[in-house]
Design a protein around this nucleic acid. Structure first.
Lengths: 143, 143
DNA sequence: ATTACTGCAAAAGATTTGCACTAGG
DNA sequence: CCTAGTGCAAATCTTTTGCAGTAAT
């Protein structure tokens, strides 16, 4: 979840072109709470943009990651890369069985950030925090 | 970094067989501070075990992950899966300029883990916690 | 008018799988 | 023994790339 103008402005501000395909991808990223994969985005947009290419989706995601407008979370156990339109430090929780990823608010995570900063002397830009396990639904199924 | 007996005992305890190939993979995992990929392990062991198959490495890693003896970290930006023999909660800190990754111990991160567990109802297997920023050396260089 | 972007198809990589043989328990 | 594990090769799947046509600025 994100403001679409943040995404589109990031593209324009960097001299990248705002095509209908990219606009649609930004809309989708801004509107969803999910942590989509390239394929998921492609399938969502296919009905409205039948000519859309998966390669274009990959290109656009790569561009947005390069601009820091979205984060690349990596695999959630399904061998495909998930992206996160929420670049604020927060906790991601992935289920290794159903491969859904949810956001989790956390008090302690703010302490961790300052702990890291103070202990390391790094100038921090961001974080990708992914816990993985079995969600309650999949625990029930596994029994 | 890990105690090799933790890895080998995990295998034996689950009724899995302790073959020379698996023993060698466990040794390597226990001895390294890196976050190895299947291919890296394969290349390290090739000289000593010329007949070793990459498929066997994948099989063994899958087994160890299934037992919770090691963690699957997912892609580190290079499109291949990295594994972590250190299953203790810890923080990875990457410099976006010199691309080094260091481990950082953290008090607060343990609180976060229990916070996540309690708030979500997930059965947690592990975590990939990566902060990124500019290390002190690169900050000095950048000025 | 430029030149970056798109879409297609092919390529490149990583991981998984089927199967016959081998060896650990 | 018996069955899980190994190694090979082929298959599968995700992501990247080359290229010619298209369109944003």
């Amino acid at each position: 979840m994100n403001d679409i103008s943040i995404l589109t402005k990031a593209l324009q501000h960097s001299g990248l072109r705002l095509t209908p395909q990219r606009m649609a991808i930004c809309e989708l990223l801004a509107a969803t709470d999910r942590h989509p994969t390239a394929l998921w985005i492609y399938e969502q947009l296919r009905p409205r943009y039948p000519s859309l290419s998966l390669a274009t989706v990959y290109h656009t995601l790569e561009a947005l990651v390069g601009l820091g407008a979205i984060n690349e979370l990596g695999s959630a156990g399904d061998g495909t890369v998930h992206y996160d339109a929420n670049v604020q430090p927060h906790i991601n929780l992935a289920c290794v069985s159903c491969h859904r990823v949810i956001d989790l608010p956390s008090e302690h995570i703010e302490h961790v950030a300052s702990e890291v900063k103070d202990a390391s002397g790094y100038r921090l830009f961001g974080a990708r925090i992914l816990y993985y396990g079995l969600c309650p639904e999949c625990q029930a199924k596994a029994i």
